[in-house]
């Protein structure tokens, strides 16, 4: 019998693979640019704000998807979502990015639920943080990261999971 840890690691690998595929699909559909995860880098823009969007995952697997970028790169995504036109109002940026995260995580949930043949996960509304020197820490989850660099900027998809233990209660 397989070690429980190995089973979970294999499951989390599958979930992460499907989440990466979802991000690549959504970027292609929104921006028209095909991207692939490559390398490793940090996003610490000088004189620019970091931007992180968090979406919670609940269901048989708990966790969160974190999309890290900068405000400037986020603006590029928002313009692409606005069919190439500049935003009428700068304050709309968070509205656009929240929906971008919702589309990405909704696609991930779709692929994951179809792969597992049941309602494996559900997603919660996004929360957006922008600040200088922003660090978001999520203890007690197994975290995996994918790094993307394209014409619109740099993006890090950080996905953390933990198996639901509600049946212990």
């Amino acid at each position: 019998m397989e070690n429980t840890t190995e089973v979970l690691e294999s499951k989390f690998d599958t979930l992460f693979g499907l989440a990466k595929r979802s991000f690549e699909e959504i970027m292609l559909e929104v921006t028209g640019e095909a991207i692939q995860a490559d390398g490793e880098f940090s996003i610490q823009p000088e004189n620019r704000l970091s931007l992180s969007i968090i979406i919670g995952i609940s269901g048989n697997t708990n966790g969160r998807i974190l999309l890290n970028t900068s405000v400037d790169y986020g603006k590029n995504i928002a313009v692409a979502m606005n069919f190439g036109d500049p935003l009428e109002n700068e304050e709309d940026l968070h509205v656009y990015l929240a929906e971008f995260a919702n589309m990405f995580c909704g696609r991930a949930a779709t692929h994951i639920n179809n792969a597992f043949g049941k309602r494996e996960i559900w997603i919660s509304p996004p929360a957006i943080f922008s600040a200088k020197d922003l660090d978001i820490v999520t203890p007690n989850v197994s975290s995996m990261k994918a790094y993307y660099e394209c014409s619109l900027g740099k993006f890090i998809v950080d996905m953390g999971f933990s198996e639901n233990t509600y049946d212990e209660f």
């Binding site: 919702n102 589309m103 995580c105 909704g106 696609r107 949930a109 779709t110 639920n113 179809n114 049941k118 309602r119 997603i123």
Partner: peptide, 9 residues
Amino acid sequence: LSAMGDETL
């Protein structure tokens, strides 16, 4: 019109 589109849904 949704971001979700799994077969169950």
